[in-house]
Design a protein around this nucleic acid. Structure first.
Lengths: 224, 224
DNA sequence: CCAAAAGTGTTTCACTTACACCCATGA
DNA sequence: TCATGGGTGTAAGTGAAACACTTTTGG
């Protein structure tokens, strides 16, 4: 099945990359890092880096996200592995991509805390990306879309209390189509995942919206 | 983002593993290889092996499948990457798992052609598996199940001409539940993916069934 | 003529979609 | 009082699920 480990051939390098989704200003955005060195110096790329020997993949992603952008996502899910030999011009690098959801309200206002220049970009207005990262983003978005119907993605993207309008906008952003207000409310309320709160939004010059929160118990019961 | 390649730390080894599905004797089976060496010498495992530098992941899987079991699958799809540091007792090995579909009628009757002992096992009667391969099989099965609704999996598992009964049995095997004959026929015929042939099964001591084939054009039109 | 599997329609139910107006609030 | 967004119900349509008998064939 495999040669003994101590006499095996050189193998590709292994990295992880993360597509970090967040909602900012009502828009779905992803976190990008500006590269400091060749190849693709100066262009934008997904946060990520090499996996250390003995390190779990998910831990590697969290370590890189923390150090590159000061971000601690609540949930991480694998998207796919990318292994085309020419995807990195230097040498063969296989990357395992993760999708992460973060609540921007929990993180330092906007950009990176630590070493590199980090910024949030609306998913429909991304700059040119290094390597095959545009492909990875496409796949991660597709995955997020398909999860939209099965799992309460809002729980990891919205603040703890939110009006239904924001949840609807989030779903519209992710699915890329506009939804009927009444149908959306019915389906999401009937699902039993939301908790109606006795609070309302700060008053504007119109009727203020009721706030909701996710019902943690009902949501975690879904996972099984 | 990453240290220069020539001064980076030692990184985990990289392998690919394949869950090869086939239909044999009306049952859904997967291909296993008996390991010849430690660890897990003598126990059954998924076919797979190390990825060579510069080699595409899918090519690596095909190479291993060809050499370990003489199998050439028509379609390969990624399942996930498995990276727990303790999944291989020797050292940290990250494996990218693929699911493959093969038509057993196209391959040498049963076991491996080449080097190792290979055999087909019904998915519901698998032996103990090495490493975390039982987990990988579970995930691959889950993926196959979810594809059942979207894609014509039969095209890669059944012979070119088959009675509807066989297709229904296949769907029942994969989904793990029994299906209503009339509803199944209606839905699969309405889908337009099948071509009704002017042939029937060899006669038994009962009415012989009409044969069908997949409409290649309609199927490939789906992929978009 | 009997055993064995092939083949065939209709009804019911749940779910999704489309659709328009009144209400509360602050400026 | 007006502009702005919050909040509400019903009807039609579409797709899934349940359900039983007749037909063909070879032995």
């Amino acid at each position: 099945m495999a040669p003994p480990l101590d006499q095996r051939l050189p193998s590709p390098a292994l990295t992880v990359d993360a597509v970090v989704f967040g909602v900012d200003d009502g828009e779905l955005k992803i976190l990008l890092i500006q590269r400091g060195m060749v190849p693709f110096a100066g262009s934008w790329a997904l946060p990520g880096g090499f996996v250390k020997l003995g390190e779990d993949l998910e831990k590697a992603v969290r370590r890189e996200l923390e150090s590159e952008a000061g971000v601690r996502p609540s949930r991480l899910e694998q998207v796919a592995a990318y292994g085309r030999p020419d995807r990195d011009p230097r040498q063969h690098v296989v990357s395992i991509a993760f999708a992460a959801l973060v609540r921007l309200d929990q993180h330092s206002p906007h950009a990176g805390t630590n070493t590199r220049l980090a910024a949030w970009f609306a998913v429909d207005r991304l700059p040119e990306l290094a390597f095959d990262h545009a492909l990875i983003v496409r796949d991660a978005l597709a995955r997020l879309r398909s999860e939209l119907s099965h799992t309460p993605v809002g729980i990891d993207l919205l603040p703890p209390k939110f009006p239904l309008r924001d949840l609807q906008h989030l779903h519209e952003q992710i699915s890329g189509r506009s939804l009927d207000k009444r149908n959306f409310r019915r389906s999401v309320l009937d699902s039993g995942l939301l908790q109606e709160l006795d609070e309302r939004e700060p008053a504007a010059r119109h009727r203020s919206a009721r706030l909701y929160s996710f019902n943690q118990d009902a949501c975690s019961a879904l996972e099984t």
